[in-house]
Design a protein around this nucleic acid. Structure first.
Length: 318
DNA sequence: AACACAATCAACCGCAAGAAC
DNA sequence: TGTTCTTGCGGTTGATTGTGT
């Protein structure tokens, strides 16, 4: 049974919004609000638009305090940091960037940040062409037998592998000890008590993930996954065999990776780990509380747990 | 100047989940 | 309790603009 369309496509206008339409929608919502019914809104206003289209236009463009234009290095770092931790959860990532929309963040990642990071310096295993890289992202290898992975998982894996290769060119595929330097077991998975101050975050989906980013204060950043309801804390059981957490190497590796990411993103010439953290205007990549537990790149959420399993399959099956 | 290709971004689409009935 | 409606999300598309040849 097909789903009823939300609107009659034959009578609804599509495509770019005109200034007149923008003005009508903006004026109405500012005066009366949405009435908690986007579907009915265009009829009330007299717009020949789909309710979903009105909602999107309002949220992405007309809403007050929307920020357009270039992203700052701080925003770049937040996006990358969260993407690698949680993947393409754009609404959650955007919630950490006041004035930015999920659509903006998504577009920015897909068109700029991803290319800067993934396309930057990768000396690929094998050919290293863009086509080969895309093939990897699609989860297929030459023999076609590898289990397909989600694009998001593959990207995160690839990104981490790329960083590790840069960090230690001698660590080739199959060197298990170097496989998971980014991962740290979370011994203190506190459930974040506060959520983003973003007014958009009232959706049930967003609330399933509490994110606290304190990078702007030069503090550690933490990302905590929790189940709906907020009571179940993710267990920190050891991952699959062979995925034991790195021990003493972890902290310095994280700092080194920060440097590599800074370099990839901003072409900074950072060579020492100590100097990196305070560079770039205080941007604090994967920072961690000195003397406390390091922040996890691969925090143990259901998603990242799955990614780790995928990762293990990729590394160990090669 | 003209064309081809790449990059960008606004808008659309379909799905999943929760709310309402 | 089951069904329908609405919202919100992430992925994708396509028009526009920029750049290279």
């Amino acid at each position: 049974m097909g789903r009823a369309p939300c609107c009659d496509k034959a009578t609804v206008k599509r495509g770019p919004w005109s200034p007149e339409e923008d003005a009508m929608l903006k004026a109405y919502i500012e005066e009366r609000g949405t009435g908690n019914n986007w579907i009915a809104l265009p009829h009330k206003i007299g717009l020949k638009r789909c309710g979903k289209s009105c909602r999107l236009r309002w949220l992405n463009y007309l809403r007050p305090n929307i920020k357009h234009g270039d992203f700052t290095p701080e925003e770049d770092s937040t996006i990358c940091k969260l993407y690698i931790s949680i993947g393409s959860r754009w609404s959650i990532i955007a919630a950490q960037l006041p004035g930015r929309t999920d659509n903006d963040v998504k577009n920015y990642w897909n068109t700029k940040l991803k290319k800067r990071l993934l396309g930057g310096r990768r000396k690929d295993r094998g050919a290293g062409t863009q086509q080969h890289r895309q093939g990897e992202l699609d989860g297929a290898n030459n023999d076609g037998e590898q289990q397909p992975l989600s694009a998001s998982a593959m990207e995160r894996i690839q990104l981490c592998m790329q960083l590790q290769e840069m960090q230690n060119p001698l660590s080739s595929i199959g060197n298990h000890n170097n496989s998971l330097h980014l991962w740290q077991p979370s011994s203190h998975h506190q459930v974040a008590a506060t959520h983003s101050n973003n007014s958009n975050s009232n959706s049930s989906r967003s609330s399933s993930f509490d994110v606290t980013v304190a990078a702007e204060q030069g503090q550690s950043s933490s990302l905590n996954g929790q189940h709906l309801g907020g009571q179940q804390q993710m267990e920190t059981a050891a991952p699959a065999d062979g995925l034991a957490s790195p021990s003493s190497a972890g902290n310095s590796n994280i700092v080194t990776i920060e440097a590599e990411l800074q370099e990839l993103l901003y072409s900074a010439t950072t060579t020492t780990t100590d100097s990196v953290v305070t560079q770039q205007g205080g941007v604090d990549w994967w920072s961690y509380d000195q003397g406390k537990s390091p922040v996890n790149c691969w925090d143990f959420t259901p998603e990242t747990s799955s990614v780790l399993q995928d990762y293990a399959a990729v590394v160990y099956d090669m």
